[in-house]
């Protein structure tokens, strides 16, 4: 995998003898044009959306209420890792409120008992992160707010997750 995108015929899940495999879009053809990442689909999906590289539809049915909510929540305020800044805006650009509230998270800051173990097991944030949105190896994309006295770069900048992303606004 030169760039991280295998051709469909060799990806291990497509039947290379399938009559329509040649008609399907190849990942490299689509993904190589988008803001690159070092993990997952090797695409910064949030940035690709914000920069207008992609313009995915937000609804297909007339009358669907599209809600984007711009509010940050600080999580893990008592722990040892840098504090988690959860940005509602980037999440609601993609997702509907009902995708997380209230069956995954109560809609009240501080009301949710979050656990990294549960997340790694595919609960809470791990319903998406680790499966479809950026994987759980990218610690500092979520743990992005250093505590007083904490150095900004806890891992070298050259390693994945090693640079703390600027607050994107």
């Amino acid at each position: 995998m030169a760039q991280g995108w295998e051709s469909l015929r060799k990806d291990g899940i497509h039947d290379p003898r399938g009559p329509a495999v040649k008609d399907k879009q190849e990942p490299a053809e689509a993904l190589s044009k988008l803001t690159p990442d070092t993990a997952g689909n090797m695409v910064r999906w949030v940035q690709a959306l914000e920069k207008g590289e992609i313009n995915p539809r937000a609804s297909i049915r007339p009358g669907t209420k599209i809600q984007v909510y711009d509010s940050d929540v600080l999580l893990n305020v008592q722990g040892g890792m840098p504090i988690v800044r959860f940005p509602h805006r980037q999440h609601t650009e993609w997702l509907d409120c009902s995708n997380c509230h209230d069956h995954l998270f109560k809609a009240q800051a501080g009301a949710n008992k979050l656990s990294m173990l549960a997340i790694l097991e595919g609960e809470q944030c791990g319903v998406c992160h680790g499966a479809v949105s950026f994987p759980l190896t990218e610690c500092f994309r979520c743990h992005s707010v250093p505590r007083p006295g904490q150095s900004l770069n806890t891992v070298p900048k050259t390693l994945p997750g090693g640079s703390i992303p600027p607050r994107s606004r």
Partner: peptide, 22 residues
């Protein structure tokens, strides 16, 4: 044959909320 559903292909064209909410 089994279906192969590709998230990357779909999320270029649709936001998560279309399939997972609507």
């Amino acid at each position: 044959r089994p279906v192969v559903f590709q998230h990357w292909f779909h999320r270029i064209r649709f936001r998560c909320k279309v399939c997972h909410a609507e």
